[in-house]
């Protein structure tokens, strides 16, 4: 009688599963009960104001920090007790500073990649061959220069290259494009798309660049006040905030702007009232920026609902 269930991506066990995560420094709770899931092949962006705990969260997931409370599973294992085979499946993009200053990018990629040789699997060649990787991140021109002479942008490309050299199933990036110019940023976004398309890499990245979140994310999580206050695609989040659609038009040469809760109804009425004479009609939905600021503001004002705003369930 019952039709066989077709497994959907949502039914697969999450790659990252966090419940009730708390992190306390002294008497201050940086994380105050974070719940989050990241599913296979998803690109999830963690957004939040400075000091919201984005870096803390990602470092706990990387196994570099012990949480005060809560359960954390990454690729099915608690990162604190994970073994080296787990490390081989996880990529971490670090912000380089002055490490390996006298090495060249080619030597460093070659060196760090060689640790992954014993961890190659069927269908997952490890590591990515050095030349291929240098091409992928666009470091051809600087591959044999000493690292200390690289520009900031080149250095970040090297950081990304080192993070993905083991062809990770799951990649963590903490503010990967901080300090990038628009061109470098665009190229980086293309690189992330290529990674997820080719290898099905799951990506969790933090940023406070909303444009970046919008371009990359399958799903955006907003972290504020130590909790996830919103969870959904950029569109879903924008739709969530009512009263922010903006309608502009001109009538008899005069410009009008109106913030409408229900833009469709408003426009219908507007056109009905003025069958002729409405020009340059423009409806602008709330941008992710509006949404983000609204969510963070309402949360900081304390009138936010404490349960995370889940949008996935409403839409699907």
């Amino acid at each position: 009688m019952s039709t066989p269930e077709i497994p959907r991506p949502l039914d697969r066990p999450p790659v990252v599963r966090v419940r009730g995560l708390r992190m306390r420094y002294g008497d201050h709770d940086v994380l105050d009960g974070v719940d989050l899931d990241v599913r296979a092949s998803e690109v999830v962006v963690l957004l939040g104001p400075n000091g919201a705990g984005k870096t803390t969260t990602i470092e706990i997931l990387e196994g570099f920090r012990r949480p005060s409370a809560g359960s954390v599973e990454v690729l099915g294992v608690d990162p604190l007790h994970a073994d080296e085979a787990w490390r081989a499946r996880v990529g971490v993009v670090l912000q380089s500073w002055r490490d390996h200053a006298r090495w060249t990018p080619r030597d460093l990629i070659d060196h760090l990649g060689s640790y992954y040789v014993p961890f190659a699997e069927d269908g997952r060649v490890r590591p990515i061959p050095t030349d291929e990787l240098i091409d992928m991140v666009g470091l051809e021109g600087a591959a044999d220069q000493r690292i200390i002479t690289l520009s900031g942008g080149q250095r970040r490309r090297l950081d990304v290259a080192v993070g993905i050299v083991g062809r990770p199933e799951l990649l963590f990036l903490d503010e990967p494009t901080a300090g990038f110019d628009p061109q470098a940023r665009r190229e980086f976004h293309e690189l992330v798309h290529r990674l997820t398309d080719l290898d099905g890499t799951t990506v969790l990245l933090t940023t406070h660049d909303l444009g970046e979140a919008e371009k990359l994310a399958d799903r955006i999580l907003i972290l504020a006040g130590g909790r996830i206050v919103a969870d959904g695609s950029a569109d879903e989040l924008a739709r969530r905030i009512r009263g922010t659609a903006e309608v502009r038009w001109t009538r008899d040469g005069e410009r009008f702007v109106h913030a409408a809760t229900d833009a469709t109804t408003f426009v219908r009425q507007l056109l009905a009232e003025h069958p002729a004479g409405i020009d340059d009609l423009e409806v602008r939905r709330a941008s992710l920026e509006d949404t983000y600021l609204e969510l963070v503001r309402s949360h900081l004002d304390g009138d936010a609902v404490h349960a995370p705003v889940s949008l996935v369930s409403e839409v699907s």
Binding site: E84, A88, V92, L94, S96, R98, D99, L112, Y115, V162
Partner: peptide
């Protein structure tokens, strides 16, 4: 020096990287 400048951390991210 190398735990402050990130060299150690960079190696630690790779499997058995600390070892190496």
């Amino acid at each position: 020096l190398e735990r402050e400048d990130g060299t150690l951390l960079r190696s630690r991210v790779a499997p058995y990287g600390l070892h190496g």
